[in-house]
Simulated scan of single mutants.
Amino acid sequence: MTPNQTAAADPAAKFDPSRAGEYEKQSRIALAGYDACHELSACMLAATLGAGRAAEVLVVGAGGTAQEIVCAARLEPAWRFTAVDPSAPMLDLAMARVAQAGLAERTHAVPGVVEDLPATPRFDAATLIGVLHHLPGDEAKRDILRAIAARLKPGAPLILAGNYRAYASEPLLLAAWGERWRMQGASADEVQAKLGKILQGADPPHSEAAVQALLAEAGFAAPQRFFGSLFWGAWLARKQGS
C-alpha cells in the first residue's frame, strides 16, 4: 500500500511524527486567521454556556497545537477538557502544549476515536476543528458527528470548523491560497506541490448547505457560521433534544 493509499484508508496515518513536528507553523500559514478562529470559538462557547460556569468540553481531533484548549482554558478557568485524537504523535504534541500552558491537570488525553469514549457522563460542549475535511466521504463525516452528538447533553453546543467547498470549484480562492504560501516565502514549485497535495489529500463538504445537512443528519440544529477564511468556515450548532 502506498503512503497515499494508507492515508486514504486511515486519515490519521498522514499525521506522522514528521508532519506533527511542522504542524504548528504550517497550520497558521494554511489558515489565515488561525488564532482568531480559535479565540472566537472559545468566545462562542462561553457565550452559549454562560460565562464563569463549570463545563466539561470534548475536544475531538485535539492533536497539534491544542489551541482550542489553550484559548478556552484562558477564557474559562472552570472548564475541563477531554482531548481525543487517533494520531499518537499529534496528541503527544498537543499535550506538550497543554503542559506548557499549565493545563495538564484540567485536560484528559484519550488516544483513539470518539467511539472509544463511554456513552456517559455526557459533555456540556464539544469542538471539531480542522478534522472533517480530512475524512473521506460523507458517511465518515456523519459517523464522527453522530458519535459526538451521542456524547453531548441535549442542547449542548458544538463548534465545527474546517474547509468546505470543493477546492477545484473555486479557482480564484485556490489561487489566492497559493499566494498565501508565496507570501510566506514558498517558491512557485513549492506552491504547486502544496496545492497538489491539498487537492489529493482532503475531501471537504462541497458547500455550506452540505455542512448544514451533515449536522442535521447527526442530530444538530441551527448552525450559525461565525468565521470564514477562503475555504474555511466555522459554525456553532446545538444538539437537538431536551
Results as ranks from 00 to 15, higher is better:
D189C: 00
W235K: 10
L93S: 15
I144L: 04
I148M: 07
T120V: 12
A237N: 10
G33T: 10
L152P: 06
Q200I: 07
K153I: 00
T82W: 07
T127S: 14
L172Q: 13
V110P: 04
E56Q: 13
T120Q: 14
F220G: 11
Q184K: 03
Q192D: 13
G50Q: 11
Y164A: 14
V131Y: 00
K194F: 07
V113C: 13
R80A: 13
D189K: 02
L31E: 05
E39R: 04
P111W: 02
A88W: 02
A96G: 12
Y164F: 13
A109G: 12
G21P: 00
L199C: 05
R122H: 06
L103N: 14
S187R: 05
G228A: 15
E139Y: 01
W79M: 03
R151P: 02
A237S: 15
Q5F: 06
D85V: 09
S87L: 04
L135F: 06
F231G: 11
A186K: 11
S229P: 07
A94I: 09
H133N: 03
P111V: 14
L173K: 14
F231L: 11
A8W: 15
I144N: 04
T82A: 11
R142C: 12
G50W: 05
N163V: 09
M95G: 10
R165T: 12
P11Q: 03
L132K: 00
W177V: 00
H38M: 03
Q192N: 13
V114R: 09
F227P: 09
H134C: 10
Y164W: 01
G130V: 07
E115A: 15
S187I: 07
F231E: 10
F226L: 11
L195M: 13
A216S: 12
E179N: 11
V114Q: 11
G102E: 10
A210V: 03
P118R: 02
G64M: 01
V70S: 02
L199V: 03
W79K: 02
P204R: 03
K153P: 00
L174Y: 07
A30F: 12
G178R: 04
S207A: 14
G162V: 07
T6Y: 00
R146S: 13
T82R: 15
G201I: 03
Q192V: 01
S27T: 15
R53C: 10
I129S: 08
R142Y: 05
A150R: 12
L215E: 06
E115M: 04
G61F: 01
L195Y: 07
A83I: 06
D116H: 14
P111T: 14
D116P: 03
A88T: 15
Y164D: 00
P205A: 12
P77L: 05
A9L: 13
R28N: 05
G50F: 09
W79V: 02
I69K: 02
A119I: 10
L31P: 03
A126Y: 05
Q224F: 08
A149G: 15
E105Y: 02
M183H: 10
G178N: 09
V110F: 03
M95S: 09
I198W: 04
D138K: 07
E24K: 06
P111K: 11
R225P: 13
N4P: 01
Q100F: 06
Q192E: 15
G185L: 08
A30Y: 08
G155M: 09
A66F: 08
A109R: 15
R238P: 00
V191E: 14
Q212V: 11
F81S: 04
G130I: 06
V60H: 08
T107D: 09
R182F: 00
Y23T: 03
L75Y: 01
G50R: 10
A99G: 14
A188Y: 00
A8P: 00
